[in-house]
Design a protein around this nucleic acid. Structure first.
Lengths: 192, 192
DNA sequence: ACCTGAACACCGTTCAAGT
DNA sequence: ACCTGAACACCGTTCAAGT
């Protein structure tokens, strides 16, 4: 219904279907059924429209953890992150791309997404299956590993062939295993 | 001297100085002092020229570890990786970007860079300061963490403010600390 | 083998004008 | 408040031609 939202959705679909070079203002406008310069009535320029796509995706990716075991919920969140990246590579690259100017809505969405992620980490820490320490620092570590694994996998830099089978999801498992070891060192009893 | 290499260097400099949108074939040719379509005598198209820039950077980033302590050498390698990314963001994004077709030289450079990195990890494992396991898998973990931290930092997604101070280099330290713990579990004697 | 100049299609952006 | 049509500058790419 809202022309502006239709433009954002059209841009996201074009990214998925044909990659970033296919995302022209003319193609977006054609999909929505308006003239090629109608976008300027809703966005300052092309970058502002793309920032709206990125903001929507950053928030959509950060649904609050569902109830149940907080550690399982955190693992599911991390897994969902890398899976979304592999299914929507162009939108993933866009959301974490560089911008020539600040966009308040995008900055707000990024902050909100990060806050939800830190909260999920803090909840998992409370179960003592994760090491103690600043949840923001642990959160940054998990996010960096997941983000890097997803990004490298998109470029074919993770070598799925051979014995060193290392999916993004495998690497997430490895980090959680290290954290479990650090939380309950071998030989020491489970804390109560 | 070589016109082709001059074009690659000009493109890299333009990326550093003015970002990807400034890298036009016309600007590259002007810097080299040739006409705006001279690049087509050396490269199939613009993407092929950019792939040559990426290949050069991937190999330049992967100097073999210098002698001495293999663990210190590996840490230095990882640190150099994230520092290079923060100093040359546009070239970092390009080197790990997406391509519409395969480029053999770029694929070869990526393979070579990965091999050198795996070798540095394997050498560090021999000191028993790193956990046992497939060096390709450990290597992928370190690379993913460093790459993700560098990429997130470029977009301002790492929250340098507040207490959760988490530089890319801090996160690398955290991973090495976890690895040290996993290699020599608390309470167990150092292996000999 | 390497380069030039003219030309073409396409894109982001602007502007005057319409409802 | 939202949209249209014409126009402009710029870019990647092609082609015929030059040394």
């Amino acid at each position: 219904v809202n022309t502006r939202d239709q433009m954002v959705a059209a841009a996201a679909n074009l990214l998925d279907e044909a990659g970033p070079e296919a995302v022209t203002l003319r193609a977006i406008a054609a999909r929505v059924g308006v003239s090629h310069n109608a976008p300027y009535k809703h966005f300052a320029d092309k970058e502002a429209l793309l920032a709206a796509v990125a903001a929507r995706d950053l928030l959509g990716r950060s649904a609050s953890a569902t109830g149940g075991d907080p550690v399982a919920a955190l693992k599911a969140l991390a897994r969902e992150y890398v899976r979304w990246a592999s299914r929507h590579p162009a939108r993933f690259k866009l959301a974490f791309g560089r911008w020539t100017r600040e966009d308040p809505a995008l900055a707000g969405a990024a902050h909100e997404a990060r806050s939800r992620f830190v909260a999920a980490v803090a909840a998992a820490q409370a179960t003592e299956a994760l090491p103690v320490g600043d949840p923001e620092r642990l959160s940054a570590m998990l996010l960096a590993l997941g983000h890097g694994a997803a990004d490298l996998a998109l470029g074919g830099h993770l070598a799925r062939d051979g014995k060193g089978h290392a999916d993004p999801e495998d690497l997430l498992d490895d980090l959680f295993a290290l954290w479990a070891l650090a939380a309950r060192p071998a030989g020491s009893p489970a804390r109560r």
